Simulated scan of single mutants.
Amino acid sequence: MKTFIIIAAINAFLAVALGAFGAHGLEGKISEKYLKIWQTGVQYQMFHAAGLFVIALLMSKLPQAGTLNWAGWLMFAGIILFSGSLYVLSLSQVSVLGAITPLGGLAFLAAWVLIIVSAIKFL
Rank of each mutant, 00 (worst) to 15 (best):
M1F: 09
M1K: 11
M1D: 08
T3P: 03
F4G: 00
F4C: 00
I5T: 10
I7H: 00
A8K: 00
I10G: 05
A12T: 06
L14T: 09
V16I: 11
A20T: 04
G25V: 07
L26A: 12
L26R: 05
K29H: 15
K29G: 13
I30C: 09
S31F: 11
S31N: 11
K36E: 14
Q39D: 15
T40K: 10
Q43C: 02
Y44F: 11
H48D: 05
A50L: 15
F53L: 14
F53E: 08
V54K: 02
V54C: 09
I55P: 02
L57W: 12
S60M: 15
L62S: 02
A65P: 00
G66A: 14
T67N: 15
N69H: 12
N69R: 12
W70Q: 14
L74Y: 10
A77F: 11
L81H: 08
L81Y: 04
L81S: 07
F82Y: 12
S83H: 00
G84A: 07
G84Y: 04
S85D: 13
S85T: 08
L86P: 01
L89A: 09
L91V: 05
S92F: 12
S92T: 15
S95F: 08
S95E: 15
V96Q: 13
V96F: 15
L97W: 08
A99V: 14
A99S: 15
P102E: 09
L103D: 07
L106P: 01
A107F: 03
F108I: 02
W112I: 06
L114E: 10
I115V: 14
S118P: 08
F122I: 06
F122R: 01
